[in-house]
Design a protein around this nucleic acid. Structure first.
Lengths: 227, 227
DNA sequence: GAGGAAACCCTAATGGTCTTAGGGGAGTCA
DNA sequence: TGACTCCCCTAAGACCATTAGGGTTTCCTC
């Protein structure tokens, strides 16, 4: 059969590509992101180093593929956290998704370093690899816009400035966590524990100006301050 | 003379060490922090690569020396900003020093990456090299304690949690700035422009509970919301 | 089934890296 | 002057990424 043969070959090729990528990830986890060696990948697969060039044009192409893969994982993890949440409260949803974000980062330090730090010497992601990351950012902006629409945030929150603030604060915590306590889990990290706090700070900073300072604005289900 | 000879030799040795370090910095600025090559350093000095081992035990030792150098620069820049300020208001002082911090980071991206990101493969700073960085952190804690003592911050601000929040938020902005707009100056960076804002958020979050929620606590000179 | 093409994997080689070993010359001191 | 230390060298080993080119297997077409 003409098609099955082609499919088989294409499938085997795809399998090898996957094998290379997962071997690369495992080696990076063990030896550090920037010290990935193609020879080591080849050894792990039981082939000779030049054979890898059948599948990737260069070492950078491997980094790029992993960047794209990570960005897709990340975007989907964020969307899944949204979909799984059974609340309509924007702030609650926000906490869930930001916790999903940081949990994913801590559980996938290799991807995080590739995605959020510029940790590899000459590596710059191609636009194609970068696209999913930008989609995730756009997801976030729309989410903040939803918060604005429901009166839980001032319109400024969904601007470029709001997104910049939001990402800096949350990614800042995760960065510090990974740099200073790389082995901590999501549950007992000293920095990542502060995520609800910075979220509070964000929502308070962009709280709609309704009457006087009303901390629990648009957020009826959270315990208020004692009267 | 016995001493002058020894001094001369020691001085020349120290000069060579400095030459090596500045050459390394220049190469890193041009080629990226992690892609530093001892051979390139040697070429720049007009010597052969093995000769560098007369002055540094390994490539990591050079990274370590630069880490220490950078931490000392950083600590001193922060202290100088404090000393030069002619205000007693803790919050004002804070803004000046955090701006000095981020300005220094943007002007010295090589040192910043070495100090605040884990960007080099197998590099871990030795305790000796790390000491000045810890001194700078202790400076910050004391500064926050001063804010507490003057009634501008709640006592929690000067705890480990407060320091973690403070460093995460400010370093988060600087990280995002350097990752996303590496060529922007301190004046026109989209992220670093938000430093006063996050400082506001911090001071508001740790505002002493004086009567009701008083947004302008300890911050008389910033325009309030319209009544 | 036979011929041909493509895919796959190999060896060999180039030029780069960090690092160690060991030797020779120059400056320094008694 | 003789000895000692320091400095820089060349040579070499063990890696690395990458290119060139050849042989074998696999698949499609006739």
């Amino acid at each position: 059969m003409s098609t099955t043969g082609l499919d088989r070959r294409a499938r085997r090729r795809q399998e090898t590509i996957e094998e290379i990528l997962t071997a690369a990830i495992e080696l990076m986890e063990a030896e550090g992101v920037a010290s990935l060696s193609l020879s080591a990948v080849a050894r792990k697969l039981g082939i000779q180093p030049p054979s890898i060039y059948q599948y990737f044009a260069s070492k950078m192409a491997i980094y790029d593929a992993l960047f794209q893969r990570g960005a897709e994982f990340f975007r989907d993890a964020r969307r899944a956290a949204h979909a799984a949440a059974d609340t309509d409260d924007v702030r609650e949803l926000d906490l869930l998704s930001v916790q999903a974000f940081s949990r994913w980062c801590l559980e996938n330090p290799v991807y995080s370093q590739l995605l959020f730090w510029r940790t590899v010497p000459g590596f710059e992601p191609t636009p194609e690899a970068f696209a999913p990351a930008q989609e995730a950012l756009e997801d976030l902006r729309q989410h903040l816009q939803a918060g604005v629409d429901r009166g839980q945030l001032r319109p400024e929150a969904a601007t470029e400035e709001g997104v910049a603030l939001y990402t800096s604060m949350t990614a800042g915590l995760v960065s510090q966590q990974m740099a200073n306590e790389p082995d901590a889990t999501f549950e007992d990290g000293r920095y990542v524990r502060l995520l609800p706090t910075v979220l509070d700070m964000f929502y308070q900073h962009y709280a709609p100006t309704r009457g006087k300072d009303d901390r629990s604005t648009g957020n009826g289900d959270r315990p208020g301050r004692p009267a």
